[in-house]
């Protein structure tokens, strides 16, 4: 009996290992349980062209001018995840407002929970804060929508959030009385309350081009890795002359910057 065991045991080990690996693969591709939920994270990695982006570091534009950025903040909201068959999951609105702040790395990685277990191949979101929330009473403005907690991403005189803020220094910008060549983009405008006005709310739609989608399971938290090319704010669909547009806030030119920031984002890869 003992010898039989001894002779068979290597096979047994091999067999059980095979089972083990098989069962692992099986778990991976296992159909999700009904009502199974998990979480998913999204990383916003900021680059300039192909180089890593750091605040206050000097970069060069296509036109040869140099610039550095001291502030880069923007709202990401109303996130929608899409599947291969075209169906979508809309993240509940109250959990769907994020303020990405480059100077605070933890804000550049956002986590969504209670996501139905599935495989997601696309993501859509809005840069900005939708008009409904932009006119709501103060009780609905918590977290990053709280004017006391959003680092000044809010206009009080013309009530509304600043969707996208980029400030910095450029050799191209006019010199101010203190000798600084600063540029300031404060882009907002949700379309107006009683009358229509600037609408710089921009929807971003990204999908995966190769490889598998983000597999959300109870025990698995995939990460969607986005690359955000800051250079495209200036050299985007239209080249922004900092000499002429060093300060862009609530004025018609802001729509040019807003069109440019639709070009910032690419879905680079997914970690499962």
């Amino acid at each position: 009996m003992y010898t039989l065991y001894k002779r068979v045991s290597p096979y047994l080990v091999a067999l059980s290992m095979a089972f083990f690996f098989l069962s692992c693969t099986n778990t991976d591709n296992l159909e999700p349980e009904p009502n199974e939920v998990g979480s998913l994270s999204i990383e916003f990695e900021h680059l300039v062209g192909g180089s890593p982006f750091d605040l206050d570091n000097e970069y060069q534009r296509a036109n040869g001018e140099t610039f550095s950025v001291s502030t880069l903040n923007y709202y990401v909201s109303n996130i929608i995840l899409s599947k291969e068959d075209g169906s979508t999951f809309v993240v509940p609105q109250e959990k769907s407002y994020f303020l990405i702040r480059n100077h605070t790395p933890e804000t550049c990685l956002i986590t969504l929970d209670s996501i139905p277990a599935d495989t997601y191949t696309g993501i859509a979101f809005t840069i900005g804060v939708d008009s409904l929330r932009s006119v709501s009473d103060i009780s609905k403005r918590t977290g990053v929508l709280d004017p006391a907690q959003n680092e000044g991403m809010y206009w009080t005189w013309n009530s509304g959030y600043i969707f996208f803020m980029m400030e910095g220094i450029s050799s191209e910008a006019p010199e101010d009385p203190t000798g600084t060549r600063a540029f300031r983009f404060h882009i907002g405008g949700f379309g107006g309350y009683e009358s229509a006005t600037l609408n710089n709310l921009k929807d971003i739609n990204l999908s995966i081009h190769h490889g598998e989608g983000a597999i959300v399971r109870k025990e698995k938290q995939p990460k969607i890795h986005l690359i955000v090319d800051v250079l495209k704010v200036l050299d985007g669909l239209e080249d922004v002359s900092l000499e002429e547009n060093a300060t862009v806030m609530f004025n018609p030119y802001s729509s040019v910057i807003a069109e440019n920031y639709t070009q910032l984002f690419t879905l680079d890869h997914i970690h499962n």
Partner: peptide, 28 residues
């Protein structure tokens, strides 16, 4: 306000609070 810049009473105080020529303060 005279120009209708604020749509909700709750947000009106912030206007005077943040205005550099009125209270020049920050809510935080």
């Amino acid at each position: 306000f005279w120009d209708g810049g604020v749509p909700n009473l709750d947000l009106t105080s912030l206007n005077a609070l943040h205005s550099p020529v009125e209270m020049d303060e920050r809510i935080e």
